[in-house]
Amino acid sequence: MKSYRADYVFSINADPIKNGIVTVDEFGKILSIGNQPAHSDAPIEQLSGILCPGFINTHCHLELSHLKNKIAKGGGLVEFIKQVQQHRNVDPAEAAEAALKADAEMYENGIVAVGDISNSSLTIEIKANSKLHYHTFVELFTFLPQNAKSAFDNGLELLKQFKPQSVSIVPHAPYSVSKELFKLIREYSDTHANLLSIHNQECEDENKLYRYKTGKFLDLYDGFGIDISYFKPQARNSLQTIIPLLSNKQKILLVHNTCTNLKDIYFIKRFDRIINWCFCPGANIYIEGHLPKTELFIEQGFNITLGTDSLASNTGLDLLAEMKLLQDQVPSLTLNKLLQWGTINGAEYLGIDDEKGTLEVGKTPGLNLITGLDGFKITADTKLKRIA
């Protein structure tokens, strides 16, 4: 049993506690939280800074960790996709070693749970032995209607390999999934527990493809030898087109949202979908050079979470750094709100809020110490240390 006193304790589900004390057992389970330790005679370690729960990273690609520093910044999404395909295939041992290091990096950065995209079985053993909780999204893609059934069947086979780990099958993105494949995923999601996630509007070319059948994706398909002559322009943005194709029985995570606008947000409110938004600002800057219009989403009544994306598209797997980018963009964002996005919101989406996301007696949420704040503002000097 250990007790820690900090300048403030952010439990997330209640107001910050000044000079708060958190007591945990040897397994990290919270025994007490408040201004008194669990036992009056127990020693208390004094810490400078704030204590908060461990972070929840709802979007990562662990199996792409070997691509760190191999893809140029700022080239845009289409060029990024080309470079990922060019550099992706390496010795599996090299890819596994990089993924293992990335898993350890997230642990050191105070992350306790991850929603992770997988296209292969590479990370099964790593996740089985990790200190982190993982939910794996087996990602399906083909834009060719005739290949939908084989892509879906292959996804089910990979899903079986990941079980009994927490796992679901999901569509990759509007520009890489045909209506036929969307239909198969929806039918499965309507009858199985199948948490959903999809890359959404990472670049304006995605909207151009759906509205007018123009833009850089046409060159990408041509370069990959994919004939999309069947595809007709939809006269509306990609999000507005694919929302009706997603199940209303499952929680849905829309990831990136770099070019999502207010009309898109209002449009999805017309449908009975369980929408969550995930922002990955570091990756947005790395790939497209700009952030989503974050302020548009804040008061819309949706659950907002945070992700790091992969080391192919980011310089690190650090949710505190992601919070700093968002705070710089929207100075009115409070630390408490950012921590909420990075903890309980992600835990609720992943369905693990009974264990993680808030500092409450009986939970094992992890315990992070954040120092170097300017009041309650994240600065260049702000650092994180994992306590439990």
Rank of each mutant, 00 (worst) to 15 (best):
Y212P: 00
Y212S: 15
K213H: 09
G215W: 10
K216E: 14
F217M: 07
F217Y: 15
L220S: 04
D222A: 11
D222N: 14
G223E: 11
F224S: 06
I226W: 15
D227C: 07
Y230I: 12
K232C: 14
K232Q: 15
K232M: 13
Q234K: 10
R236W: 01
N237P: 03
S238R: 11
S238G: 12
Q240I: 03
T241R: 12
I242N: 07
I242K: 09
P244Y: 09
L245T: 05
L245C: 10
I252K: 09
T258N: 11
T258R: 00
C259L: 01
C259E: 13
C259Y: 08
T260P: 02
N261R: 01
L262N: 15
D264F: 11
D264R: 06
Y266R: 15
F271H: 15
D272T: 08
D272F: 01
I274H: 15
I274V: 10
F279M: 10
G282K: 01
N284P: 00
I285A: 00
Y286C: 00
Y286W: 01
G289H: 01
G289S: 05
P292T: 08
E299H: 11
Q300S: 03
G301D: 05
L306P: 03
G307A: 13
G307C: 04
G307Y: 03
G307K: 05
S310R: 04
L311Q: 01
A312L: 03
S313T: 00
T315L: 06
L317K: 05
D318A: 00
A321W: 01
E322N: 05
E322G: 04
L326K: 05
L326W: 11
L326H: 11
Q327Y: 02
Q327C: 07
D328H: 07
Q329N: 15
V330D: 13
